[in-house]
């Protein structure tokens, strides 16, 4: 533009744009801003040289500084592991009962166990062990495989029907499918089990059911129906039911039993983590 217009008041050039008599000034950038901008450009060039910056066809420019964000992350993790080793070495050397007796170690286990539980256990057992039908409640005082610290630790480490060599394993026979019992007998035994739990009035069915129970069920669930934790036979006399509390539900489970599976956590979690989460589960309210 040959003839630039100058604004009389500010002395600045105008851009030539005009709206309703108002003209736009072509005010230059402030000097400090401009120089900061140039410094940034110079800095960027230096950055490309020192840090990883540009993609190439198969890789990227590595930079002369030897920095990588993955390396930084690994170093962070290693440092964290190092700082935790004061605790974790004690955890590795002690069993869960010993750890549970030490208030400081227990506090550490609680903090870590809570997070481990939320990440790994809560999908089935619910937050804070609130449970769901088929997935045992961990906050109550009823334990299929025992509620001591050690028993919980074994269950967490090796799982239930997990396929691990040392897994906890129990199987309820398929009483109807394998023609061990007929439908009438199953109805009787269900009635008997209901009476164990809520003390309902004895009837003919209950008496017949008692005989069937004695023959078929007591081996795993105990003579009195109170369960045998070492065999994984649930207590049938209490108010807690894995599936649901009704005669029909019991008959269904006897006819065609469902078998839940809990994975073995050995290999998925570290030994120390398993101890932490076992102690956390023990503290949820029902630990023995």
């Amino acid at each position: 533009m040959a003839n630039v217009e100058k604004d009389a008041i500010s002395g600045q050039e105008t851009t030539g744009h005009e709206w309703d008599g108002i003209k736009e000034l072509n005010t230059p950038m402030p000097k400090w801003w401009l120089y900061t901008y140039y410094v940034c450009i110079v800095f960027a060039v230096g950055y490309w040289v020192v840090y990883p910056a540009w993609p190439t066809l198969s890789s990227y420019t590595k930079g002369t500084g030897g920095y990588s964000s993955r390396g930084e992350h690994d170093a962070d993790l290693a440092a964290q592991k190092q700082s935790r080793s004061a605790w974790t070495s004690k955890f590795a050397a002690m069993n869960v009962d010993e750890i549970g007796g030490d208030r400081q170690l227990l506090n550490y286990a609680m903090a870590g166990g809570k997070i481990i539980f939320a990440e790994n256990c809560a999908p089935c057992h619910g937050t804070a062990g609130s449970g769901a039908p088929g997935y045992p409640i961990l906050a109550d005082d009823d334990w299929i495989w025992g509620g001591t610290r050690d028993a919980i630790h074994t269950t967490v480490a090796f799982g239930v029907r997990s396929g691990h060599d040392e897994t906890r394993e129990s199987e309820m026979p398929n009483f109807l499918g394998d023609e061990i019992l007929n439908k009438a007998q199953i109805a009787d035994v269900a009635e008997y089990i209901m009476s164990l739990s809520d003390g309902s009035i004895s009837s003919d069915g209950v008496e017949r059911g008692a005989v069937v129970f004695e023959e078929q069920c007591s081996a795993c669930h105990g003579e009195d129906g109170k369960g045998l934790p070492e065999l994984g036979g649930p207590n049938l006399t209490d108010a807690i039911w894995l599936y649901s509390k009704s005669k029909e539900a019991i008959a269904t489970q006897v006819s065609a039993p469902k078998h839940g599976v809990m994975p073995a956590w050995t290999g998925r979690l570290s030994d120390v983590e398993i101890k932490q989460v076992s102690l956390y589960v023990h503290s949820l309210g029902g630990g023995q």
Binding site: G126, T127, A128, S130, G131, I137, D140, D141, D142, D238
Partner: peptide, 12 residues
């Protein structure tokens, strides 16, 4: 505690 809201114990 909100989860579980309450827990049923073995004695009911």
């Amino acid at each position: 505690d909100r989860s579980p809201l309450f827990v049923t114990l073995s004695d009911g």
